[in-house]
Design a protein around this nucleic acid. Structure first.
Lengths: 245, 245
DNA sequence: GGTCATTCTCGTACGTTGTACGAGAATAGG
DNA sequence: CCTATTCTCGTACAACGTACGAGAATGACC
């Protein structure tokens, strides 16, 4: 829990030298998570992958949560942070694309990130980089932070949307049975007539060509980026209508 | 895992009548979650709150995950879904406000929602309602679904942002010590000069009046709603600049 | 080289979790 | 009454995070 101990790599001075490094532990944990999901990242499993006793991990990591934070920071460091150009919109789009690629390469990342405020060296560097990209917008520093949260939140939640779309199309053999049962249930819900607009959307999902995930992401990202600098309310409310209370 | 069994309330026909109802179980679970957080929602804890044996819960719920889904659907049912007016923007804003209020009343909701695609009767009703509000935008049904995901994702992720802001201001006595340690660590990071833009944002956070959470939400929500119907890319790239690759 | 403080290793053990199992209790229909 | 059916819940087990402490391995100093 102590951030100092978490992010500083204490050098070995006296006593028995450690058999591994913190980096190796984190690397193994990431490999396990990539291969078998976040729930497979148990202390026993990671220790086994490292070829050490379970409790030895606690030499490198104070608790499981700390390991997760280190994993997040480690994979965040994979993203390239190219210098800003004269087009902040393109720069920010590139950053968002990098975030998306990261989350697709490490599908456990959104879940690990949920409800966590990781601020390690790499995470801070990425945040600082994104803030730098936002400077040309002329927004205040605080507004830049909000804008970053907006874009960042969009990417994370869109990854979830993509995952739902893909599983609806039915790719994983193992989830096939559940998808079918779910489809049966939803078909019944649709046919009940209680959810006409959902039914329309579901019908539209079924017919026509499957949407290109990349194109969908780009389109929605464009809309989010639009919102960053546009005036807050371009359409004044109709003169006759009062607030909804 | 079977959606049919999850969302249909089977009537009691023969044999020993159940001592409780599924609704009562879910209500107790929600109460526990509201009071002590999602991690306190264990089968043993909920059973105790209900005054029954632990294993009796499995008569009403097939597994813990199913209980969480029922909890989500139950509290989603709390939100009012007023009929559409002639101002879809205001309608959608009201819906988003309702979602935010829901998540503030049940702070465990975002965490429970993470990585889950709950489609119970109330959840479907809310989704259908939101889609109905989006019809006047003229977007295609599929685009409406995307727009809903966009708004919904924004609200959820903004709740996380709000929580971070509030904990940074230091309200909970218990989190005080951690906040101080974290502040010390961040101060050091800021003073290292490696993160100048983050430093600027942090400085801006410290000075000036604390931002009004409601106003911030409204402002960002406005930006998101703007993006829904605005053209995807209002600023054509500068003629001389090529893509970033 | 011997001694000692220091540090890492990891077997054992405890408390907590979800839940499988099955014996017993309660009810409805015959 | 009897019997089929359903709910109740004590017991039990595997898996989890991790506290504890004995043993092993090293660097620093005499």
């Amino acid at each position: 829990m102590d951030p100092e101990a978490l992010w500083s790599d204490r050098r070995h001075r006296r006593g028995r030298p450690p058999a591994h490094t913190r980096e190796a532990v984190v690397e193994r944990a990431v490999a396990v998570a990539d291969a078998e999901g976040l729930s497979a990242v148990t202390m026993r499993r990671v220790a086994a992958a490292l070829g050490s006793g379970t409790m030895s991990l606690y030499t490198y990591v104070s608790e499981r949560d700390a390991l997760l934070e280190l994993m997040i920071d480690a994979v965040t460091g994979e993203q390239e942070l190219p210098p800003a150009t004269d087009d902040w919109r393109a720069d920010l789009a590139a950053y968002a694309r990098g975030q998306r690629a990261l989350m697709r390469r490490h599908p456990w990342l959104p879940a690990a990130l949920a409800g966590r405020r990781t601020l390690g060296p790499n995470t801070l560097a990425a945040l600082d980089h994104a803030l730098a990209l936002l400077v040309p917008t002329g927004l205040s520093p605080l507004a830049c932070l909000e804008a970053f949260a907006l874009v960042s939140g969009f990417v994370a939640s869109h990854i979830g949307y993509e995952a739902a779309q893909e599983s609806a199309l039915g790719d994983a053999e193992q989830a096939r049975r559940f998808a079918e049962a779910n489809a049966r249930y939803l078909t019944k819900a649709v046919e009940s007539g209680a959810y006409p607009h959902f039914a329309a959307a579901a019908a539209a999902s079924g017919t026509g060509p499957p949407p290109d995930p990349d194109a969908t992401f780009e389109r929605l990202l464009g809309r989010v980026l639009n919102g960053l600098t546009a005036p807050a309310d371009p359409r004044p409310p109709a003169p006759g209508s009062s607030a909804t209370g």
